Simulated assay, not measured.
Amino acid sequence: MPVGYARVSTRDQDLDLQVEASTQAGCERLFKDKVSGSHAERPGLAKALEMLREGDTLVIGKLDRLGRSVRNLVDLVGSLHKQSIQFKSLGDGIDTGTPSGRHFFDVIASLAEMEHDLTMERTRAGLEVARQLARKGGRKRQMTDSKIDSAKKLLATGMPPRDVAKKLGVSASTRYRWLSASTRT
Score class of each variant (00 low, 15 high):
R53G: 11
L127P: 00
V59S: 02
G138R: 07
L49E: 06
L45S: 04
P161M: 13
S100D: 14
M114F: 13
I85G: 03
I85R: 05
L17R: 10
L118A: 09
L30S: 09
K147H: 07
L133E: 14
W178G: 14
A125F: 06
K147R: 15
L179Q: 09
V19I: 15
E54D: 10
M159A: 13
R124W: 07
S9P: 06
A112K: 02
L90W: 04
C27L: 05
V74G: 04
R42A: 04
Y5N: 02
T96S: 06
G97Y: 06
H39A: 10
S150A: 15
A156S: 15
Q132N: 09
S38H: 14
Y176L: 14
S100V: 11
L80K: 04
K34I: 06
F31S: 01
D92K: 04
R102K: 12
N72D: 15
E28D: 13
V59E: 04
I148M: 08
M120W: 10
A125G: 10
A6K: 02
Q13T: 07
C27N: 03
K152P: 00
G93E: 02
D14C: 00
R71E: 08
F31E: 00
G101R: 01
L155S: 15
R53F: 08
L154D: 09
H116I: 11
E115G: 00
V3W: 07
G61L: 11
L179E: 09
